[in-house]
Design a protein around this nucleic acid. Structure first.
Length: 470
DNA sequence: CTAGGGTTAG
């Protein structure tokens, strides 16, 4: 008897045990209890039962959800050994898992290994979503064209893969084209396709196009409302957020945490404390009080509305604090001129093993700037790239120019601008100009190399302010 | 195979 047939007989003899395991595993995965699903898988192996084509998809899906590429690879090996690789459900779950774990080349390999893939919509869709996640527009389009060329059926999920990467700048043209395609194919705009297109428009800043599509959708689901509300929120249209939220409530649509996140963030920007408190009560009433996204938004809301103590209470009460939670509270102390506390918190965060990101540095740099902690800010700026490998962006340069400028260290500010790789933006010039104004030194700005660049840019494209406006 | 989220200066 060959190895393969031995294995086959073994599988046959154990399949009677499998249904129970498979049911448990499926239930856990469908309830998003992924850790439980994986431990069930391990128990199953230990008990001597062999996983089969009804086991793997749920175990693999759990790896994808938890982003566990190593476990995923091990499962891939188990799949190969069990001879289930050719099962479409197993194969698609593997492709999807690799895509979600940022191992897109492995996903491609699984796809290519089996000629059957090129006949199945689901296989194409899972690979497409992997490329979409990485915003690999070219690969997405090539794959889509290949599907059409081979006559593989195209469905709504296929279109999701095409629409998703169109939300990033420069891809709106393609997105609109895909929109037309969806209409031509008669795809249901009230479903995920419509929601995805809506998100694409608002992410591209085409908020009016988004609103038009929103209005045209007769059966708006919760996700539709959320996409539009958060679209307004992300584009800084806080008043529209509150208006739409009211409308949503009046229509009897019940909000979920994602809705309230957008509303709270808009309250923060408007300084609308009373609405913010209303949302907080809603949160409690709906049982969302421990949602970390909402608590981060609450910290920000209270801090911006002037109630720093309350912001701090919420922060202290969070059992797990992410870099976003820290950034929110640091920013809160920073904007209230308590730079010392902000700096202490920043250091405490690092001691606690949380790695700061670019945004965290913006908030601590600005805190230093407000509190006059110039040298401390200069230190952080250096540490940022040296220790954390974070390239300073235009925002960081703006903070630094502001920091140095306020301290009257104008020449250092100018030198910094001249040395920078990132493109100067309005905020940066505003910061330098502000500093020059305070210190009555207008000649300095006229002497910088970038002013020439600015002059040329102004002629080419009117995105820059003209010299008259300055 | 599958749509929506929090933090950042001037």
């Amino acid at each position: 008897m060959t190895m393969k047939t031995k294995l086959y007989h073994h599988l046959q003899s154990t399949t009677t045990k499998n249904p129970q395991w498979n049911t448990l595993l499926r239930e856990a995965a469908n309830k998003s209890l992924f850790t439980k699903a994986l431990s069930l898988y391990l128990h199953m192996l230990r008990s001597g039962a062999f996983p089969n084509a009804f086991t793997f998809p749920f175990a693999i899906k759990s790896c994808a959800a938890l982003s566990l590429p190593i476990t995923g690879k091990q499962l891939h090996c188990h799949v190969v050994k069990s001879g289930c690789l050719l099962e479409p459900f197993v194969q698609t779950s593997l492709i999807s898992m690799y895509g979600k774990c940022s191992l897109i080349d492995n996903a491609r390999q699984v796809f290519d290994e089996n000629p059957q893939s090129r006949k199945l919509t689901v296989c194409y869709n899972s690979l497409l979503s992997g490329y979409a996640l990485k915003s690999r527009v070219k690969d997405v389009v090539v794959l889509f064209c290949e599907m059409r060329g081979l006559g593989v059926e195209i469905n709504g999920v296929t279109m999701l893969g095409l629409v998703q990467p169109c939300g990033i700048p420069g891809n709106l043209g393609l997105g609109m084209c895909v929109h037309g395609f969806c209409v031509k194919f008669g795809l249901d705009m009230d479903s995920s396709v419509g929601n995805c297109l809506l998100t694409m428009y608002v992410k591209s800043g085409e908020i009016d196009c988004g609103r038009k599509l929103f209005n045209e959708m007769p059966r708006k689901g919760l996700i539709t409302w959320n996409a539009m509300i958060n679209g307004y929120a992300q584009n800084g249209l806080a008043n529209n957020v509150l208006e739409l939220y009211k409308e949503m409530e009046s229509k009897g649509v019940c909000p979920d945490p994602l809705t309230l996140v957008g509303v709270l963030s808009s309250c923060a920007h408007l300084g609308a404390l009373s609405v913010g408190k209303e949302v907080e009560r809603k949160m409690e009433g709906c049982g969302f009080s421990s949602n970390p996204f909402l608590n981060n938004a609450l910290i920000n809301m209270y801090a911006r509305c002037g109630n720093l103590e309350k912001a701090r209470d919420i922060f202290d009460g969070m059992p797990v604090k992410s870099v976003v939670s820290w950034t929110a509270i640091i920013g809160g102390y920073g904007m209230h001129g308590q730079g010392e506390v902000a700096v202490q918190l920043f250091d405490e965060m690092i001691r606690g093993g949380i790695r700061p990101d670019g945004t965290a540095f913006v908030s601590v740099l600005s805190a230093c700037s407000h509190a006059g902690l110039t040298n401390k800010g200069v230190d952080y700026f250096g540490v940022m790239e040296r220790k954390y490998g974070l390239r300073p962006s235009a925002e960081h340069y703006s903070c630094m120019v502001d920091l140095l400028g306020r301290a009257g260290r104008l020449n250092e500010a100018r030198e910094l601008i001249e040395s920078m790789q990132a493109r100067a933006d309005g905020a940066l010039w505003g910061a330098l100009l502000g500093a020059c104004k305070i210190h009555r030194n207008v000649d300095l700005i006229a002497g910088t190399r970038q002013v020439e660049v600015l002059g040329i840019a102004a002629k080419k494209k009117s995105a820059w302010p003209s010299t008259d406006e300055m």
